[in-house]
Amino acid sequence: MHGPASPGWLLVALCAATGAYCLVRMRSTVEEQRRAAGGEALMGFGMAVMAVPATVFTPPGWAWPLYAAVFGAAALRALWSARSSPHHLHHLVGTAAMVYMAVAMAASPGAHHHGGAGVPLVTGPLLVYFTGFVLLSGARLVPLGAAAAGTAAVRWGDRPELARACRLSMGIGMVAMLLAL
């Protein structure tokens, strides 16, 4: 991603930590939790790789089309899964945003995508969606965390407040990446 190195490394750390926790969630005893965690782990690690500052590592030209293909396949899977769960619609938007950013990075490696001419047509709606998602997720997280404080011991992979915090972190990361695009 374009932009200063320090926030880029913070974003890498946030997304990698989120991806790692999603791998822990894949050990859940709840099938839907495991299924969602796999897609979220892919998003977390994919965002971490994409957020590595360009001053440190510039991927080869073939990496961005490969990246777009991987997230395009994930988008098709999310579209198929959305038939049974509306949560997968969010995964669909997220994977589509990753495809969009990979294509934008392939089109202009090392330079800002929109060149200061304003927000591109696709970036604006994605920013609105993810900003709304972050605000709504944050509002939903507070009461759930307070209610879960008095419950019995729950496995790390089955904690709904941590799963929501993961999604909130990835939403914040997506907003940051779209702004840096």
Score class of each variant (00 low, 15 high):
residue 1 M to E: 02
residue 3 G to W: 10
residue 4 P to G: 07
residue 6 S to G: 08
residue 8 G to Y: 00
residue 11 L to Q: 05
residue 12 V to Q: 00
residue 12 V to L: 05
residue 14 L to F: 06
residue 14 L to M: 14
residue 16 A to W: 04
residue 24 V to N: 11
residue 28 S to W: 10
residue 29 T to A: 15
residue 29 T to W: 03
residue 32 E to V: 12
residue 33 Q to E: 14
residue 35 R to Y: 06
residue 40 E to M: 12
residue 41 A to F: 08
residue 45 F to W: 13
residue 49 V to C: 06
residue 52 V to T: 07
residue 55 T to M: 08
residue 58 T to S: 14
residue 59 P to A: 15
residue 61 G to P: 05
residue 62 W to T: 00
residue 63 A to V: 11
residue 65 P to Y: 11
residue 66 L to C: 14
residue 71 F to W: 10
residue 73 A to V: 15
residue 74 A to N: 12
residue 75 A to H: 10
residue 76 L to F: 05
residue 77 R to W: 03
residue 82 A to W: 09
residue 82 A to P: 02
residue 83 R to T: 05
residue 88 H to G: 01
residue 89 L to P: 01
residue 90 H to K: 02
residue 90 H to T: 01
residue 91 H to S: 02
residue 96 A to H: 03
residue 97 A to G: 06
residue 99 V to L: 04
residue 100 Y to L: 06
residue 102 A to Q: 01
residue 103 V to S: 03
residue 103 V to T: 09
residue 105 M to V: 04
residue 105 M to N: 09
residue 108 S to F: 03
residue 108 S to R: 15
residue 111 A to R: 13
residue 117 A to R: 14
residue 120 P to W: 06
residue 125 P to W: 04
residue 130 F to R: 02
residue 133 F to W: 05
residue 134 V to T: 11
residue 135 L to G: 03
residue 135 L to V: 14
residue 138 G to E: 03
residue 139 A to T: 01
residue 142 V to L: 14
residue 146 A to S: 08
residue 147 A to S: 09
residue 150 G to F: 04
residue 153 A to R: 08
residue 154 V to M: 13
residue 157 G to H: 11
residue 159 R to K: 12
residue 159 R to L: 15
residue 161 E to H: 13
residue 162 L to T: 08
residue 163 A to M: 13
residue 167 R to I: 08
residue 167 R to F: 01
residue 167 R to N: 13
residue 168 L to S: 09
residue 172 I to M: 11
residue 173 G to N: 05
residue 175 V to P: 07
residue 176 A to D: 03
residue 176 A to F: 14
residue 177 M to E: 11
residue 178 L to P: 05
residue 178 L to R: 03
residue 181 L to H: 10
residue 181 L to R: 03
